[in-house]
Design a protein around this nucleic acid. Structure first.
Lengths: 225, 225, 225, 225
DNA sequence: TATGAATGAGGCTTCATTCAT
DNA sequence: AATGAATGAAGCCTCATTCAT
């Protein structure tokens, strides 16, 4: 009986080691992508970085592209979780929490977010991965349904502008997307303060589309007169 | 002398033809990138699309990457011009004109804007192009200086929030960047109305950071007076 | 002593199990080769088909090629047996029995015969198997000696044409070889009747080289009476 | 005008050189296949044997398999021609000419015939070449139609046994196929005389199925007396 | 000057074989 | 004794770039 349980244990342990290594492959790939650029990462390099043979990588992933997809899915799952927390908070009375959570998740490691964006473009040009990409899209769509519900609520409550609900979160997504790109764009001079900048942008993201804003533009508002 | 001048003319004409062809190469490359995806465009295809030999392409560009850079530079020059017009308008009393011009320029052909974004990432991974990339960055920085001046003015006038001036245009840049990506992302469900959506986002871009906005949220305006 | 004998029994039993498994490996390999094509059979697949581990296969066979050789040897042994029976019959007064037995053996499972032919070609290109191949050839040569003897007898008796004895059985071999290939060649149109066709060919095989044939063309028959 | 014609000449010459090299590739591949065995021939080796770069091979053939197919088609075309000549002769009064021509064509370079047989088996296991293989099969089928016609005639004339016409040429094909294999099989002892042997077999091929043979077995025959 | 044929480095992937457990 | 995870050699193919004409 002890032998049985120990054999079970051993299997379990092996499984764990296997999964651990899978994670190490992904991590190594990630690091290489970030440090050397997508084009310069080869399966050989990944294997070498993990300290395993090239063939072993293929025990975990059917093709190189599957590694990329996996990185993307893992990342998207993380986003999904953060967003879910934010949505819950938003429904408990903090209207901006969803956008905030979303921004924080994506700007936590902007370099990673950016990598994922670019991986997606590469993969969209590749054949035979449509199904896995579809999985990614489905994940996003389920997020979207949640967001759509939340936005509708907030519009009803008068917190947000009365435009199609998805306008709000898509604008938010766009801003996050751009903020990430901004964080890495080498063209800008004045940037000794990216943290404050990101907060500034996050704030815009959290408040944009709020009902007060446009009134302000159109109508009397502003004691500016 | 007439023979001399005619020879000069001939030289000039040749130069013109040469430059024309250069542009045709760039245009063809652009179309191919957009229609087939970056990875699937080869120098051969570009040459064939222009109707010239592969070797001839190399009379105009030292490497394939130089074509990419050139596409980016051309595009950035266009942006620069549009922005310059906007800045001029802004200084003549229409504070939102700069942001508006910028957004319009970038969203005019979002697919092109997006292409350029992705080309940039590819190229940033390549060695030996640093100088040309630097040229691109310098172009942007000169824009930036103009924008910085404009923003400072608008802040002084109380039109914009009193944050470091570059926060304003960088946020704007980020939103435009993200809006472009949004236009192409396949993950979103609710999108039968991308034109209105882009206007909505443009509006945010034009007004975000405006001084009224945040006060407005709190309650009655700025006791600033 | 009883313990000893039981231990001997156990050893014997183990040996039997071991040999059984060896046969199962060969059988599985055979089935896979036939159903999937030589190129698509891997050692892994064979092991999986048998329900054992890949490593275990290597307890039985030093290399993958040894499995192939073994398939061929087994097959050749079977042919040998059938032929031996035929030869015996031939010597008991039925001159065609040897050829008949031979044809029947090879055409019994033409797909298998064909497989073996092709395996042989693969293996002849491989180094380090010369000895085993030699074994195969020796087996055939021993058959050949028997046949040679038989043919000589039949020639002496005037049943067969007076040509070098091996001409007869080699022609027979060739026809069988070709008939097998014929059964699998996809190029032929008129083939709703392969059974009759094979009989037709078998008949030719049995009678070809018979003395009567040519005489017959020239003039009067066999003094067989 | 002379310049024009010279340019045309040059183009023609280039085309010729190109086709020449294509033939050299095929020839080199052929030699390598014959001398080293199918499995040991790589595209690199072929290119090296021709004295060109690996990439150049791919200017002529889309894939390695296309080289194989090409070898097969070239060979089959040759067979077709020889057969056509034989059929013509057969229709002019020499009934055995078709079979004779066919045998001679295939046994002229038995090692090549054998190679083609085996290439075909390899390729039939490969996907995505079905169309080209179909071309090969069509070539054979057109031959078959001619043969079918000829055999029908000969049967009508009483030269051949009255069995379905295709029995005759298929038996012939089978014997040729086997004869080729025989010529290369290393298992046989008594073979210092392969030329005579091949003639013996050819003779069988030419006469087998002839009407006299079976009658002969049954009974009276030939008014020869 | 324009060409495009030729090149070959380099990437992905497969699978027979080994060996520690 | 049985296993199967790990390995890495080896093969096919692409395409940017060169250079002789």
């Amino acid at each position: 009986m002890s032998s049985q349980s120990s054999s079970t244990d051993r299997i379990r342990e092996k499984k764990k080691l296997f999964l651990d290594r899978e994670q190490r492959i992904i991590d190594a790939a990630l690091e290489l992508f970030l440090s050397e650029g997508i084009d310069r990462v080869t399966v050989s390099k990944i294997a070498a970085a993990v300290g395993i043979g090239k063939g072993t990588v293929y025990k975990h992933f059917l093709t190189k592209n599957e590694i990329l997809i996996r990185i993307m899915l893992d990342y998207e799952h993380n986003i999904t979780n953060c967003l879910a927390v934010g949505i819950t908070k938003a429904q408990s009375g903090d209207p901006g929490a969803a956008a905030k959570g979303y921004f924080e998740a994506r700007l936590a490691r902007p370099e990673l977010d950016r990598l994922v964006q670019h991986l997606e473009v590469r993969l969209s040009e590749v054949e035979d991965i449509a199904p896995q990409l579809e999985q990614l899209h489905q994940l996003r769509r389920s997020n979207e349904d949640s967001l759509n519900g939340l936005m509708s609520e907030l519009i009803e409550k008068g917190v947000l502008e009365d435009v199609p609900p998805h306008f709000h979160y898509l604008a938010c997504w766009a801003l996050a997307q751009g903020a990430v790109e901004l964080a890495f764009n080498k063209s800008w001079n004045y940037r000794t303060d990216s943290k404050e900048l990101m907060e500034f942008i996050s704030n815009i993201g959290v408040t944009m589309g709020n009902r007060g804003q446009y009134h302000n533009v159109d109508g009397n508002k502003t004691g500016s007169k």
